[in-house]
Structure formats: structure tokens, C-alpha cells
């Protein structure tokens, strides 16, 4: 049986791990290569590096992080943040990433999804989405780290990206992100119902039960968390043990 995945996300700026709470108040917490190894030992099913390096010129630093991690950690690595072109996809995959996550740029240039899927395969194209509720059962898509409302209907968007060949969706709820009140279950379920590609739940988890709940109440195949793991509030191992006790298949 396919296990549900627990995915720690490392926000990386200029080669160092950071975590923005509601995308603000960033502070440094460590070396990404080292943290990736720690999470690997804890049983992380996948590791996400999210590059928030502001200047495009410094992007090479992120590729070095990926290259070093790929020599030491043998679980899938996903890299997102600032991916703008097919060349960015290629460079990131060549550095050792297994998947590339594209967010704002996919909204502004959906053809990028199709091209990347054609050239590199759907399996490595993950589309990240930041969405916010506007009415009951209605959400719109934001870009630029949740700052700009594109007035694009979430469900319409996930249909589009599935058709374009995306292999996976990482769905972040702007309303839930940073609140620690649990994943945005209605939004996740709406997206899981709309597509047949895997959906990763992101944003809002604050306690161990939030993980079992998201797998019991929605069709999400993976759950992603950042600060919860790297401030040591929970280990990946504890989360997996808890989910197992709820009869959720875990590696």
C-alpha cells in the first residue's frame, strides 16, 4: 500500500535555512545540507528546499546546496522558488533535484508547465499554489509569496495545470499558513476532488494531530511542514509514529 508522505520544507536564503512566519519576520536557523541529513535520519519521505534568495545572481548558491545534499541524502529532493525558465528547471535537475516546484511563474506563464513536462517528464513538475478563501468553497490564487491576488479561481487553475502536464500539486493555504491551527481541510478536499494527480498539503499544521487529520479527512497524499520541524517542536519520526497509530500507512 502506498504510504502517505511527511515532507519537511527548508526555506533557504543565500544558502542558509530560514523560516518566514506569514512570510515575514525571517531569521536564520542553520545549514540546509546538515538539516536535510537530520530529517533524512528522522525518516523524512522527501525534502523540499524553497529558495527565497532575492537576487537572481545568487541562485548558484542554492544549486550548490542541492548538489551537496544529493551526495548525502538518498530520498527525493524538490527545489522551488524563483524558477522562471526551462533553463532553471534543467540546472536544478542537473544539480540533483528530483522535482522542481514552480509557483508564481506558472501562473504568469502556464506554458512553462507544459514545456517542462514535455522535456523532463511530468514526474518532476510540481506546481506550488498559494490560495486564499474569498467565499464559501471559493478560493483565489495568489503569487509573489502570497502578496498578489491574481483573481484566478483555484479550482479552475488546478484543472489547467493538470491538463498542462503537472505531476503534483503543493497546495498552501494563505489563511492557514503560520496560524498553527491545522491544515485547510475544505480547500484541500476541493482540490483533491478536482484533480487525479497527487496533492501535498501545506500551511497551518501546529500539532501532531493535524497530520493524521489531514490524511483522514482529505485525499492529500503528503503533508508538508517547515517551522514545526526545524524549531524541534516535533520530529518527523514522531509524526509518522502518530499517523501509524491512526492506521495511516507510513514508511
Amino acid at each position: 500500500m502506498l504510504a502517505k508522505r511527511i515532507i519537511p520544507c527548508l526555506d533557504v536564503r543565500d544558502g542558509k535555512v530560514v523560516k518566514g512566519v506569514k512570510f515575514e519576520g525571517i531569521r536564520d536557523v542553520g545549514d540546509p545540507v546538515e538539516l536535510a541529513q537530520v530529517y533524512n535520519k528522522q525518516g523524512a519521505d522527501e525534502i523540499v528546499f524553497y529558495d527565497i534568495t532575492a537576487s537572481y545572481e545568487k541562485r548558484g548558491v542554492m544549486l550548490d546546496v542541492v548538489r551537496e545534499t544529493a551526495k548525502k541524502v538518498f530520498v527525493p529532493l524538490t527545489v522551488g522558488g524563483g524558477i522562471k525558465s526551462i533553463d532553471d528547471f534543467r540546472d536544478t535537475l542537473r544539480a540533483g533535484a528530483d522535482k522542481v516546484s514552480v509557483n508564481s511563474q506558472a501562473v504568469q506563464n502556464p506554458e512553462l508547465i507544459r514545456k517542462a513536462a514535455d522535456i523532463f517528464g511530468s514526474q518532476c513538475v510540481c506546481v506550488g499554489i498559494d490560495a486564499k478563501k474569498v467565499a464559501d468553497n471559493k478560493w483565489t490564487v495568489y503569487i509573489n509569496g502570497g502578496r498578489k491576488d491574481m483573481h484566478l479561481d483555484l479550482i479552475e487553475w488546478v484543472h489547467t495545470i493538470e491538463k498542462l502536464g503537472a505531476g503534483e500539486i503543493c497546495l498552501n493555504s494563505i489563511d492557514a499558513d503560520g496560524t498553527k491551527e491545522g491544515f485547510d481541510l475544505p480547500m484541500l478536499q476541493a482540490v483533491c476532488n478536482a484533480v487525479s494527480i497527487p496533492v501535498i498539503a501545506s500551511g497551518g499544521c501546529g500539532k501532531i494531530e493535524d497530520f493524521s487529520t489531514v490524511f483522514e479527512k482529505t485525499g492529500a497524499t503528503a503533508a508538508l511542514a517547515a517551522s514545526l520541524f526545524h524549531f524541534g517542536e516535533l520530529t518527523v519520526g514522531e509524526v509518522k509514529q502518530h499517523c501509524r497509530s491512526h492506521n495511516i500507512a507510513m514508511r
Binding site: L2, D45, Q123, P198, T221, R251
Partner: peptide, 30 residues
């Protein structure tokens, strides 16, 4: 089913295969 089949799944063994020797009984692969 969700396609692609993406993630970790548990090996169930069939015919003997030398490169699968010595694995834990609960072995998940990606």
C-alpha cells in the same frame, strides 16, 4: 487511483531475487 503512482510503497516478495536479500521485512521503496 491517483496517477502517477508517486511515493513510498511496501515491497511484497515473490520469486527469490539475490539483490533483495537482507532487506527488512517492511521495506518501502520510492
Amino acid at each position: 487511483l491517483i496517477i502517477p503512482h508517486m511515493g513510498w510503497n511496501k515491497l511484497e516478495y515473490n520469486i527469490d531475487c539475490p539483490i533483495l536479500h537482507g532487506l527488512p521485512e517492511e521495506s518501502y521503496v520510492y
